[in-house]
Each structure stands twice: as structure tokens, then as C-alpha cells.
Amino acid sequence: MRRLKRDPLERAFLRGYQYGVHGKSRDLCPLTNPNARQAWINGWREGRGDQWDGFTGTAGIHRLNQLHAV
């Protein structure tokens, strides 16, 4: 059975979110495609906001699952 790949923009968002929630710099974005880069930065911003709000550890995992389900 073939596994469906996720949308590249969704993957970029989730990867950026992970960088942001771990407090890493926005300058570490590895993407060059403008649309994917913007999705990554949007995820990074969301992750930084969640880090500032205290969504780290177990709470961060639950938050990431909510973002992924949408």
C-alpha cells in the first residue's frame, strides 16, 4: 500500500514550527522556494508565539497535533 505524501507547504510549516518552538533563529530557514519559505516562516512565527506562551514539552506536542489536524 502506498503512503500519501504530505503537502510540501504543510511540511514546511510544521518544520518551521519545530524550529520556532525550540527557540532557533529564523535565519536558519533552509528553503529557497518563495512559497515554501513563507510557509516555513509562518510556522516559525507560530512556534515562537507558542514558546513564549509556554507551550513546550508535552503541551507543545499537543499543540503541534492540533496544528497538524487542521
Rank of each mutant, 00 (worst) to 15 (best):
R26T: 08
I61E: 15
W44V: 08
N33F: 00
H68R: 14
Q66A: 15
L64H: 10
V21E: 03
G23D: 06
A39C: 07
G60M: 00
R11E: 15
C29L: 03
L28V: 03
Q66W: 09
Q51Y: 04
N65T: 12
V70I: 08
H62N: 15
K24I: 06
G57S: 12
W40E: 07
L28I: 04
G57M: 05
R26E: 10
K24P: 03
G20M: 02
L31Y: 07
R2E: 09
A59R: 12
L9H: 09
C29V: 05
N33H: 02
L67Y: 09
Q66T: 14
E46L: 12
T32F: 07
G54N: 08
T56Q: 12
P34L: 01
T56D: 01
K24N: 13
W52F: 04
C29K: 07
D27A: 14
H22G: 11
A69R: 14
R2F: 13
R6V: 06
M1P: 06
A36P: 00
R3A: 14
I41C: 11
L31Q: 03
F13K: 01
H62T: 14
C29Q: 05
R15C: 05
W52V: 10
T32R: 11
Q51W: 01
A39E: 09
P8R: 11
N65P: 02
E46Y: 07
L28W: 01
E10S: 14
T56F: 02
K5E: 12
G16T: 03
T58E: 14
R48C: 02
G43S: 10
D50P: 04
A39P: 06
T32S: 13
R63V: 08
D53A: 15
P34H: 06
V70A: 07
G54Q: 09
D27S: 15
V21T: 11
E46N: 10
